[in-house]
């Protein structure tokens, strides 16, 4: 049985990317890594069935999305990360990017689980509405409505990303 070395290679190569995906799905770095590891346990158990022609990364991502979709914060026993927004700094500052990242993650955490997962699958993973519906086992109507509400929440004038969107719209108007 040589599945363990193959699995180790897969995890070593793809773990950082999967943690980033988990971070977006949960809105939190720690929970994102937790979700990643829990999902990789399932991938490990399915490894013999997935190899050599399967796609373990696609499988893992699907497990992650469905776990986040179904369980949301319940997966982490109600623990909610602190939403600490750092003070704004000048554009171009080395800290500005960090601030925006924190603001985006805070905004993601503020979204209902379903909206957050759909948003990430649609605008980060680049899946179509149909593909998201198939992956999550829901209707395309549900995907559309959750995505629409998520965008509306992010764009709210008093929301944490209002400034980021304002910059973008100003930039595009120029």
């Amino acid at each position: 049985m040589n599945e363990a070395p193959d699995f180790a290679q897969f995890v070593t190569a793809r773990y950082p990317a999967l943690v980033r995906y988990g971070t977006l799905l949960t809105g939190d770095r720690g929970h994102g890594e937790d979700l990643t590891q829990e999902s990789l346990v399932k991938t490990y158990r399915a490894w013999r069935r997935l190899s050599p022609d399967g796609d373990p990364e696609a499988y893992t991502r699907t497990v992650m999305a469905r776990a986040a979709w179904r369980f949301g914060r319940r997966l982490w026993r109600g623990e909610i990360p602190a939403a600490t927004l750092p003070d704004r700094t000048a554009a171009g500052d080395a800290y500005a990017r960090h601030d925006t990242a924190e603001a985006v993650l805070a905004a993601l955490r503020a979204l209902p689980t379903g909206q957050r997962v759909v948003l990430v699958l649609r605008y980060w993973a680049g899946l179509s509405e149909g593909e998201i519906a198939a992956q999550l086992g829901c209707s395309t109507g549900t995907v559309k409505s959750r995505a629409s509400r998520a965008i509306a929440s992010l764009r709210r004038a008093d929301g944490p990303l209002a400034e980021a969107f304002a910059h973008a719209e100003t930039g595009s108007a120029r």
């Binding site: 699995f7 070593t12 950082p16 943690v19 977006l24 990789l40 925006t100 990242a101 990430v120 992010l154």
Partner: peptide
């Protein structure tokens, strides 16, 4: 813009676990 923001949010995220396997 949404895609950019999401990318930016995790661009610097690195795993805390040294030995993920």
């Amino acid at each position: 813009r949404i895609s950019e923001l999401l990318n930016e949010a995790v661009a610097d995220v690195e795993p805390a676990t040294v030995d993920p396997v």
